[in-house]
């Protein structure tokens, strides 16, 4: 596809970030249209997580802005937040609740468009819905966290190391999930070391200083 003919949904303009007196990245520009994916690479502490948090709106960039459908996501965040699904390092799960209740809360809170049952189906955890989340393995907990994204198709997924603790089969499942998300017009931005199969993804490598 010719990049000029497309209508980009998410635009980052000259993003810079400084943490604890250290420049992580400066002057980042990119534009992503529906169906696009961006993979962030780079060594540890190169600023991948910080970039994701800046994009989400959790961190203030030192310079630059992020536009979602032409609106500055810091000035007018309502639309952006409705379309954004964020997966950080934490799984945001409460071990006291059942698998279903955990997902149910986030679905209600984030007003997800898919039901928790459909989302659990997508990550292959339907059979565990009534178990306490504390009984899940680390990999299963990660999949449950991914189910939260699966419940919100169509927007922009920001994923920080989504493959951590996942086994090979689940990684494949994840890449299928991302492919389907993109096919439905979603955008995926993920930071990952590993070669998660993301077809036709743009790659942004951080931490390479000139």
């Amino acid at each position: 596809m010719d990049p000029d003919s497309r209508n980009p949904a998410l635009i980052a303009q000259s993003l810079s970030c400084e943490r604890g007196g250290r420049h992580l990245f400066a002057g980042l520009d990119f534009a992503l249209a529906p169906g696009d994916a961006l993979v962030l690479r780079g060594p540890n502490a190169s600023g991948k997580s910080s970039l994701l948090r800046v994009l989400a709106g959790l961190l203030e960039p030192t310079e630059g802005q992020v536009l979602w459908h032409g609106k500055d996501t810091r000035e007018d965040p309502a639309d952006w937040r409705r379309s954004l699904a964020f997966l950080g390092h934490g799984t945001a799960l409460k071990p006291q609740f059942s698998v279903g209740d955990n997902l149910g809360f986030w679905s209600r809170f984030e007003q997800a468009s898919r039901t928790p049952a459909e989302a659990l189906e997508a990550v292959g955890l339907s059979h565990l819905a009534d178990l306490p989340a504390s009984m899940l393995s680390a990999g299963q907990q990660r999949r449950l966290a991914l189910a939260r994204l699966a419940a919100r198709p169509g927007g922009c997924w920001l994923m920080d190391e989504p493959t951590v603790t996942l086994d090979a089969a689940s990684v494949e499942q994840l890449s299928a999930m991302i492919a389907q998300h993109r096919a439905e017009g979603g955008i995926a931005i993920l930071a990952t070391h590993e070669d998660l199969a993301v077809e036709n993804a743009a790659v942004l490598t951080l931490g390479v200083r000139s």
Binding site: R53, A56, G57, L58, P77, A78, R81, R82, L84, F86, G88, H89, G90, T91, A92, L93, K94, W106, F109, E110
Partner: peptide
């Protein structure tokens, strides 16, 4: 804060 829920709470509309 520790399990990452706070990030998601902060990102809600």
């Amino acid at each position: 804060l520790e399990d990452g829920s706070l990030d998601l709470l902060a990102l809600s509309p």
